[in-house]
Design a protein around this nucleic acid. Structure first.
Lengths: 354, 354
DNA sequence: CTGAAAGCGCTAACAT
DNA sequence: ATGTTAGCGCTTTCAG
């Protein structure tokens, strides 16, 4: 029954109990559907609850049970289609299991991530899903481990932190892309990522995103195997999101222009495509463009863009399933799930101009 | 200081107080930074807290203060770029103000929305941001009002529910698009939306999304003013997300094909573009395509797509600012903020073939 | 400035 | 099957 009246506070179990003329405990049992209650009493309590417009207080319940039925998820940026999809995957399995998600954007910055983690822990989430801002700085993750809260990483791992993780085979994906380009005859291939990175890339360096690191690895080893000299000079990191276009333009101009570009995510592919278009360099005739992640528009451009696709929704879903399992008490040693990437060939690759 | 040891429970204010040799109240004051505490004591408490690895329990705090510093947001689908952007806008102003977001996807279904609202209320969010699944069914919103929780709607309003809302001028946007098409010489223009709707559209009908309703209104009135007969036959609702392509294909084939399409969101524009491409109907020569929302890929296709753009990030941001104001106690009568839409002309409009 | 005690709304023993 | 009584961890009077 809908409640009217002004200035009343929310009805509590006590209120319901009083109206139903039973003890608080009995009312709680009937309302919370646990313990044993006779049918008659159950009805009376239910009726009283309806009459008072009783709404349970999940926080109070959490206080006494210790379970919040809430998961924390911290990602780079919900506007990035990758994270949006992964988050949806997570939200779906969470909702299915009766859990909610508290969402935080880190913008890939450790400080923001730290704050997000602290708040989530303070709110006593039952577990955390994190796409770590850095694979090199375990601090933020360590604090959730210290707090003894289950944690599952996704998209990237962080060496030294022993937790579950769900990632995809970036190295293999990069190999596929690179081989495709090599086979088409390319030798000057730029790999572009917005990953934050100090100074130019040097061979053997460990990157702050294991995902990008693995891609670079697959890229470099494939080039090296093919006998391409100094392949690391083709790795371009630290591109600002809004600077990718300029970078791409620069790579396409100059004395020794690249003939192919590998974009480390769909947003970069977008910028590269735009740069090419604006300088009237034709794809695939004058430039081959490939990338990671299959954005829905990639089949719409002329030509369509060849990519390796990852099961993004599933990344979030699997990570959440694993987290739920841990919350349920699974104590097996941490494992990292490696999902496959799949090549989707479209028209953006051809032999280099000369 | 990082804590070691197994099986210990989280440190509480009491623990800290004991170690610092002060009362619980004093420790709480020092930790929570309220009340008055002498410097010496403050230090001692802080040190004790560090030593124990004390992490505040935000739920307990909420229990006694009544404020959770958490906002609920319920949207259609976080994978939809529109909602992703609006959510980011909301998250940004929320974080700025020290609030978190609990996210729920309704898939535009009332039942899912009802459940989401119930859970959010149970978790005692300080306020809710909702893009209502239906402008016709006030029930879910009424329950948040009944719970006396501040509520701000965005993207659509629901007549009869007196609350704040942030929307954009869909009617004007639709007029602009329609006029553009009319001016180019089009007379057979299809308006496509995935909005759930029973049976064919009849003039004067109120739709379950005020946003789509306003667009249809602007569309119809502009056509009517131009003397186009039976314009309501051009309104196509209830398209399944994965059926838009077929629908578009059907509209382009048949005896009396449309010469222009207005897509009610970027996902529909995408599907329509693909349908045209697949049937080799050339845009803009054989089909003019326009739509709502400026997706980032729309400047990449050949031709680029003409749209009216809405300040999506700002929709979420403004809604959240308003919500925060209400939470702070602002009791002015509800107001609905109307943001402008802006025409972005690209190359997808031309005169019809014949 | 500091302490004691009550209370937020619920669940969990432990009786009866 | 139902009731009594303690808490959960924090804030908040109210004293001193």
């Amino acid at each position: 029954m809908t409640e009217t009246g002004i200035g009343r506070r929310e009805a509590t179990v006590s209120d319901v109990a009083r109206l139903a003329r039973v003890s608080k405990a009995t009312a709680a049992r009937a309302l919370g559907d646990y313990g044993a209650v006779s049918d008659g009493v159950r009805d009376r309590v239910q009726k009283a609850a309806d009459e008072l417009g009783y709404r349970p207080n999940a926080l109070a319940r959490t206080m006494s049970t210790g379970r919040s039925h809430t998961l924390g998820i911290v990602i780079g940026d919900i506007e990035n289609p990758f994270f949006a999809k992964a988050t949806r995957g997570a939200a779906d399995v969470a909702a299915e299991a009766g859990y909610d998600l508290i969402l935080s954007n880190s913008d890939e910055e450790l400080a923001a991530e730290a704050k997000a983690v602290a708040v989530q822990l303070a709110k006593r989430v039952d577990g955390l899903l994190i796409a770590p801002a850095s694979s090199l700085a375990p601090g933020n993750l360590q604090s959730v481990l210290d707090a003894r809260r289950p944690l599952v990483l996704f998209d990237r791992t962080v060496p030294g932190v022993e937790v579950d993780a769900v990632i995809t085979d970036n190295r293999a994906g990069a190999r596929q892309l690179t081989e495709l380009l090599l086979k088409a005859g390319h030798r000057r291939i730029a790999f572009i990522s917005t990953l934050a990175h100090e100074g130019g890339f040097r061979a053997g360096e460990v990157l702050s995103s294991s995902a990008v690191g693995d891609r670079v690895l697959g890229f470099l080893e494939t080039l090296t195997e093919a006998g391409v000299p100094h392949p690391e000079s083709f790795v371009h990191l630290n591109a600002r999101r809004d600077g990718v276009e300029v970078l791409a333009a620069r790579l396409l101009g100059g004395a020794d222009p690249v003939t192919a570009i590998i974009a480390s995510d769909s947003l970069i592919a977008l910028a590269a495509f735009r740069a090419a278009r604006e300088r009237s360099v034709s794809i695939p005739d004058q430039l081959s463009l490939v990338g990671f992640d299959d954005a829905d528009w990639m089949s719409l451009t002329t030509p369509g863009i060849t990519v390796v696709e990852q099961p993004i929704h599933e990344i979030g879903a699997q990570a959440t399933r694993m987290l739920l399992r841990r919350i349920a008490g699974d104590a097996r040693p941490p494992e990292t799930t490696l999902l496959a990437q799949r090549l989707v060939e479209r028209g953006s690759v051809a032999a280099p101009a000369r």
